[in-house]
């Protein structure tokens, strides 16, 4: 552990946030957290993390802004189209054999991936039998996800991704454009539950067939990665699927032997029968 004063202050700040508000960022990757909290430090015109700690402890509304620095909400509809193509063409044929399905999007941020899956399930005729759970620790992100409203200038990228992901029909069938925003059809949320859940501190809440957890684990240190993957592993049915981000791997975690590599390049894993 680094003994630089700044790093001691950073650990104390995270400890303060945990004790006061029960948000636990202590097991996050420090390089990224430090960079983002340094930006927050400038934004709040604090010279040190200790000063920022004073403000977050004494001013309740500072926490809400800090959360947007502490959690990264950058995604797209059908981000990494190849991943969604593999789900559609190789994973869905397995899922189709079940009479009812549950999918968990862990760390759903502003909901882009939930809407992507919901659209794809509709296109594949699986939407009526599928329940999607979208979970995140950031309440502001969950509200945005619930609203399903995205800036219209992001839609050309979303549309291109949808096509590359093997989309049937036009993405515009699923949203209405108004006042510079695209409002996604509320029928896409019919079988969706957005809810607060922390991979750091919460436990299994459902038995699911597919967990999609992309670009979330990269913000965790190894110990926390092990915990989070353990929760996902316990949530999955036998031979259930786990999808990770395009540069994430189970290789450096303790759970590597519990999964088979289903699609190496799409980073889709399948839980072994005898984990």
């Amino acid at each position: 552990m680094s003994d630089k004063v700044e790093d001691i202050e950073l650990r104390l700040l995270l400890q303060a946030i945990f004790e006061r508000y029960h948000y636990d960022f202590r097991g996050y990757s420090m390089a990224s957290i430090k960079r983002r909290l340094s930006q927050a430090k400038s934004r709040f015109q604090c010279d040190t993390f200790s000063q920022l700690q004073g403000r977050v402890l004494h001013e309740a509304d500072v926490l809400a802004s800090l959360l947007s620095y502490l959690t990264v909400q950058v995604s797209e509809l059908f981000r990494d189209p190849h991943y969604f193509r593999v789900l559609r063409e190789e994973v869905f044929p397995h899922l189709r054999t079940y009479p009812s399905l549950k999918i968990w999007v862990a760390g759903c941020g502003d909901g882009e991936e939930v809407y992507s899956l919901s659209i794809m399930l509709r296109e594949e005729g699986l939407d009526d039998r599928t329940m999607i759970y979208g979970t995140d620790v950031n309440p502001q992100a969950l509200r945005k996800a619930e609203a399903g409203v995205y800036d219209l200038d992001r839609l050309p990228l979303f549309t291109k991704n949808h096509q590359l992901a093997g989309g049937k029909g036009s993405l515009s069938d699923y949203y209405t454009a108004a006042y510079g925003a695209a409002v996604f059809d509320k029928s896409l949320r019919k079988n969706v539950v957005f809810s607060d859940h922390s991979l750091v501190s919460d436990a299994v809440f459902a038995e699911v067939h597919l967990v999609s957890c992309r670009n979330v684990l990269i913000y965790f240190d190894r110990e926390l990665q092990n915990r989070a993957i353990g929760v996902m592993l316990d949530s999955l049915i036998r031979r259930g699927f786990l999808g990770l981000g395009s540069k994430e791997t189970l290789r450096f975690t303790q759970h590597v032997a519990a999964f088979d590599e289903f699609s190496r390049e799409a980073r889709v894993y399948q839980k072994r029968s005898d984990p």
Binding site: S2, S29, A31, S32, V74, N215, I218, Y219, K247
Partner: peptide, 21 residues
Amino acid sequence: APPDYHLMIETEKLISLSSEE
């Protein structure tokens, strides 16, 4: 550094990737 990810170095001498802005 892979496309579309930042490459970061942790003080424990590990690599972290990040898709922040």
